[in-house]
Nucleic acid binder design. Sequence first.
DNA 1: TAGATTGTTAATCGATTAACAATC
DNA 2: TAGATTGTTAATCGATTAACAATC
Lengths: 221, 221
Amino acid sequence: MAVKERPAPIPSVRRLPLYLRYLKALPPQEHTHISCTRIARELGQIPIQVRKDLAVTGINGKPKVGYPVSLLIRAIEDFLGWDRSSEAFLLGAGSLGMALMEYEQFQHLGLRIVAAFDIDPGKIGRRVNGVAVHALDALPAVVRERPVLIGILTVPGEAAQEIAQRLTEAGVRALWNFTPATLAVPEEVVVENVQLSCSLAVLTSRLRMSPEGVHRSGPRG
Amino acid sequence: MAVKERPAPIPSVRRLPLYLRYLKALPPQEHTHISCTRIARELGQIPIQVRKDLAVTGINGKPKVGYPVSLLIRAIEDFLGWDRSSEAFLLGAGSLGMALMEYEQFQHLGLRIVAAFDIDPGKIGRRVNGVAVHALDALPAVVRERPVLIGILTVPGEAAQEIAQRLTEAGVRALWNFTPATLAVPEEVVVENVQLSCSLAVLTSRLRMSPEGVHRSGPRG
DNA sequence: TAGATTGTTAATCGATTAACAATC
DNA sequence: TAGATTGTTAATCGATTAACAATC
């Protein structure tokens, strides 16, 4: 019987793209191998963390030599599934939705937005960066043709829950939530939140704690 | 001598905006008080976590009664600094930058973008949602007039490090980084990353782990 | 060879969760 | 009053960091 393997720690998964970007930017022929010491130094981390993170991809380094760069790149891409491409729907063709449709880097992240949906008649029928904007009501029909697993939510917060429901009913299994809403979904559906308010809360509270934060009146007035 | 108080846990701070949004959406006169049990149920969390999170704001609830809604809202807003408004510069008026400039909700998050910067002559001098787009070289002059503490980075990844440096040299103390770059900054500068690639990595890896993930060939082929 | 670096096992740290007396 | 809910202290859990033998 196989030992049940633990899933990779989420924080490690979250850091993998940083390593990948760094590795891909390395001068191609300069080194065939790289150590976690060096990666850590360049990215402001500590070596042991890099080592642990890279280990989740299954890569094997050599003592004293380090990790083979090209194999390491492939191992991360493979682990993240970025070598093959996942299709996604985008819900809400407002300015944020438009920005995501125009974001060329997604092709390197294994993501392809194949259709957008909106309720604004002025947007329906348009094409943005090659992607057609459909009426929201066309969702079931479009899904039937193309069983897409990922939905990107860039609708107003008030509409988010209803759209999430329509998506999961249509068979979408993962929601990338850019709205401020907290989504209630069936437990088999994955939700990843990109909530600006949450991120901003951390930024401002850390700024306030920092030596020269928002308040000019610090510890010593 | 005062007991040195620990800073609030980052995960708690990150969740506060979710509670705030929920509380503000409550029917105004319906309840004067609310329990963490109820908040937890509505937001898919557990009561003890809500209780611990709310405690960081300094609010005091009453056993059996719960927390006073309006005071709780004020306590969270006060803790996050969202009752007063912080000014920010936006660097890079591309489609993502534009989307942020047009994001009306920032006013409820205590953030006001007061100037944007770009190097594209076609954008310099324009106004987006009332915000002027300046030449990047005008940064020192604009800072001199208005000592802003927060910089929002929506430039291409290749440019991010250089812009970050210019910002910190100009006195900006917090960077909200929407680029894929890992920024090296002086230690007194706060960096909060909103990196789509990192978020997407978590989404896709969790989708792959889930019962009906990307691969149709699951445990039973 | 000597020593930098790996993979692995152990220790530490911080966040989450549990337990429970106090109380409105 | 009885019991739901709080604040606080303790236990658990998982991630981070340290230690170290193995090794290219």
